[in-house]
Amino acid sequence: MDGESIATFQFLGLTFNTTNIISGTVAAVIVFLVVFIMSRNLKLRPTGKQNALEWMMDFTNGILRGSMDAKKSTGFGLYAFTLFLFLFVSNEIGLFLQIGWNHVTYLRSPTADPIVTLTFSLITMMLAHYSGVSQLGFKGYFKNTYLTPFKVWLPISIFTEFIDFLTLGLRIYGVIFAGEMLLKIIGGMAFSGGILNMVVAILLALIWQAFSVFLGAIQAFVFVTLTSVYISDKIEVEE
């Protein structure tokens, strides 16, 4: 675990992290396959997997409806749904599957890397600001976002936007990264001593993994909830 290095490669003058590329692709493929299989054979009278899929859609739509009008929330349904599933799978994937070779990890939770979580945070903030401008016009958006409640609030508002962006991304990164690191430490402990160490470590790993599954789900939920809150902040004028 120590001396862990990152495999990178250059393409078109840009630096890519191999681990992130592989992990992200795997997570996306898993999400797509699950949703694809669940959405086969759609019927008016839903059965089994269709019920589950509709429940998931209703779940993310419910998150959106919690913070904005039902009419406005329909446009963001797909985004929230995809975001939730992708983040959820990304959070959980590293818990049971970590592939390393030559001290280089090739597969783990993509969300354990801040660059990934901040990318999603950035996408959310851009979507929120874009929706604000398209809903209220640039003047209305500027007034609603930066000059409310007072005009002198402007510096704080600008600062807040950055804080929102950073906390949204770093929150999920912190939880998942810490979870994975603790798992690695427990794993290292398992092979550090005798059989007793192994037994204790396996128990600890089990408990921590169960807790991490819960944490991953909570973090995906929190991310989507905050996304919908930020979007509604931008598109709805507070009276």
Binding site: T15, F16, I21, G24, L83, T119
Partner: peptide, 16 residues
């Protein structure tokens, strides 16, 4: 890693 950000943005849009 600007490349990663781009990759994830595109990956996410394609997935969506």
């Amino acid at each position: 890693y600007i490349g990663d950000m781009l990759f994830y943005a595109i990956l996410f849009v394609v997935l969506m």
